[in-house]
Design a protein around this nucleic acid. Structure first.
Lengths: 177, 177
DNA sequence: GATTGACATGTCGACATAGACATGTAAGCC
DNA sequence: GGCTTACATGTCTATGTCGACATGTCAATC
């Protein structure tokens, strides 16, 4: 009989949810949408993961139901224990630096294409980044319209700045012989 | 009985492997190392995934064994069919833009901390990026010493450029009230 | 009042992934 | 010759994740 240390690896989904709820209480349905617009560059999760994890977080006392709305919806908020968890994770937690980014894999492989093929692929990627930048700009505008600074306002800026660098780099890739 | 369309989602591991082998033939063991130093920002895979996938790629005729070395090692190389696969994927394949990046999740949550806690967390993240930049610089030097330009040389540049932007952004986060 | 579509929550099965477990080889050092 | 360490390949289990399946609510439009 072997001793298998049970490691908890599902840390990011858990903390991403706590983070979103710390900004504003929300239903599972809203969280699923926020993952794509607000936290899209960092993490993705579908509702089939979110609902069970919310139940586990509630059981662990890190979130609580603060309201029930139409269509059997439940609004969750972070408890003090949940805030502690966020803080501890950021200050003490050991970071997992692994990344999983198919777009980046594509960009790595661009160099393997013939110049003509590469230009076509780069065009596609540039079109994607332009769409992405447009989305970020819209988000920035919406956040700037709020009475007080939104906690995620600066991450939108980070996205805009890195996108500029990436677009410049992609253009150079198209020109490479 | 319901018709379940079997979707193939393991596309990135497959193409990341093909891409690495297109640059230079390698053993499974070497590929596992390359994932972390060469493709680390884009994808991560451990040997327990790599060996079975190499076997599947060989079965599919996209890679072949081009040499056997000491300690029962096998060196794989990409076949013409494998090159076609890379090209088709880059030109025609539908991109999955989802990302999974725990570091980015951490950076998003920084804004939720009290200024003092945040400065501590930012210091940690800055230390990580500095280590990462040092590694990239070493890689760049090593690639520049080669007789001809390495296909992945420009992706190292992209990493260096985005790191600069990120470090600047992190410093700003530490200063925010 | 029927239809449509967005809102809302849930489960299930297939597949992906990490890390432990397993085994053996070769090189260098003492 | 024994020890240690890096090389090298493999499997298995627990867990993570996606997409399909399932069910129901409410509002708007026809």
């Amino acid at each position: 009989m072997s001793i298998r240390t049970v490691r908890w690896r599902q840390v990011s989904l858990r903390h991403a949810l706590l983070g979103l709820l710390a900004v504003q209480p929300a239903t599972g349905y809203e969280l699923a949408q926020k993952f794509d617009v607000s936290l899209g560059t960092a993490w993705h999760a579908s509702h089939s993961q979110i609902y069970p994890e919310l139940a586990r977080l509630q059981e662990a006392g890190m979130v609580e139901v603060v309201g029930e709305g139409a269509r059997n919806s439940r609004t969750y908020a972070v408890t003090p224990a949940g805030h502690d968890e966020i803080r501890t994770w950021l200050i003490e937690g050991e970071a997992n630096r692994n990344q999983r980014n198919e777009t980046a894999v594509r960009w790595f492989l661009l160099a393997l294409l013939e110049p003509e093929d590469r230009r076509a692929a780069v065009e596609r990627e540039l079109a994607y980044t332009e769409q992405y930048v447009a989305m970020l700009r819209q988000t920035a505008e919406a956040l700037d319209a709020l009475p007080r600074k939104h906690p995620f306002r600066s991450t939108v800026d980070l996205g805009l700045r890195t996108s500029t660098v990436m677009q410049q780099w992609l253009r150079e890739q198209a020109e490479e012989a």
